[in-house]
């Protein structure tokens, strides 16, 4: 995947990245600087992800979106100046994104990802997809999985958000602090005379595709027992993705009441297909899933950004394989779904 670490950081880079090098180390920073990332979907969540990984110092970022800026972008898309309503989202975002860190190459691509084939994706180390319908997510995920490209997907709907990661077979380094006994210290005041030692261990983890995560049979004896502990947001997201596919848009504040009714119908439908009782997900979600709320984008985009950094730098255990945020109760959960 990521090209091997190349030459040294310049003094400018060392100064700019000082505080994060103190956290994740020089090797991680070198790997970051070699990473080429494709970001699909430049709405609120996309803007947060773009900001976080450009600040961290990746090699290059391609912003891809074929849709145009609407009024609603003002809720959370801070990379687009307000004067650009009607223009292409990727192109409108490029200038402010590039200003965040002059050391990162930022380019825009206004084509539709649906028209891109396998060879296109091979130009990237990481692909990160937002604002897409489920079929596209599944298609891109398979391409990435085949090509060993790190794949991420996610969305924010009002107070709800999620991230999914398929890092395939992922190797990473993890530091643990161990104590070593100090021998024969005279001033043995307390047993505190122990020196700490940081041990770096190599580990690996397997991920599954989104297809497998969505194919879990919750009616089976094993899974139905576990169902109670699965974050409800997992199912709420499936309802919202169904809405997006069916109505070719997301729930809109302009048609709020009508959309709430349709969301509840879709909820019943989705849960029935999954053989889960309808009241497993109560009605309240439908009133809180409009537009991408800025603080929710910040939270989900923050987790997202850190997971991309982990994936690229191969440092620390990644979250396998979902993160869910529910702004109504403030919980953020990590769950491994479809990976037995």
């Amino acid at each position: 995947m990521v090209e091997q670490k190349e030459m040294n950081l310049t003094e400018d880079e060392a100064a700019l990245y000082d505080r994060q090098i103190r956290l994740w180390g020089l090797d991680a920073q070198k790997r970051l600087r070699a990473a080429r990332v494709l970001l699909i979907g430049l709405q609120g969540l996309g803007a947060e992800i773009a900001k976080n990984i450009v600040l961290a110092g990746i090699k290059s970022l391609t912003l891809m979106d074929h849709t145009v800026v609407t009024e609603e972008d003002a809720c959370s898309q801070f990379l687009i100046p307000r004067s650009k309503i009607g223009e292409n989202r990727a192109e409108a975002s490029v200038e402010r994104t590039a200003l965040l860190n002059p050391m990162v190459e930022v380019t825009a691509d206004s084509s539709d990802i649906a028209e891109k084939d396998e060879t296109f994706f091979q130009n990237f180390d990481v692909v990160c997809a937002t604002n897409l319908i489920k079929d596209q997510l599944l298609r891109i995920n398979s391409i990435c999985h085949e090509n060993k490209i790190k794949f991420f997907a996610g969305d924010v709907f009002g107070y709800h958000g999620f991230m999914f990661a398929d890092l395939n077979e992922h190797e990473y380094a993890e530091e643990t602090i161990k104590k070593k006994k100090e021998s024969g210290e005279a001033s043995a005041k307390k047993a505190k005379m122990q020196e700490e030692e940081t041990v770096v261990s190599k580990k690996s983890m397997s991920f599954v595709r989104l297809k497998e995560a969505l194919a879990v049979d919750w009616s089976s004896e094993n899974m139905s027992k576990l169902l109670k502990k699965v974050p409800k947001t997992f199912f709420i997201i499936q309802v919202l993705l169904r809405f997006r596919a069916q109505y070719k848009r997301d729930p809109s504040p302009k048609s709020k009441e009508e959309d709430i009714v349709n969301l509840l119908k879709l909820r019943d439908q989705v849960l029935e297909e999954l053989k889960i009782s309808k009241d497993f997900v109560d009605d309240s979600f439908a009133s809180y899933c409009f537009a991408e709320l800025s603080p929710v984008c910040a939270i989900v985009g923050g987790v997202f950004g850190q997971e991309i950094i982990k994936a690229v730098s191969q440092k620390d255990a990644p979250h396998n394989n979902f993160f869910f945020f529910n702004g109504l109760d403030g919980s953020g959960m990590v769950d491994c779904i479809g990976n037995s």
Partner: peptide, 27 residues
């Protein structure tokens, strides 16, 4: 420098998450 300056490393992503949570509580 870390020890003498008492530097606590800081990154964008953590700050973004916490600032998001701040607004959720304020709401």
């Amino acid at each position: 420098k870390s020890m003498a300056g008492n530097i606590i490393p800081a990154i964008a992503t953590t700050n973004a998450i916490i600032a998001g949570l701040l607004v959720m509580e304020a709401l």
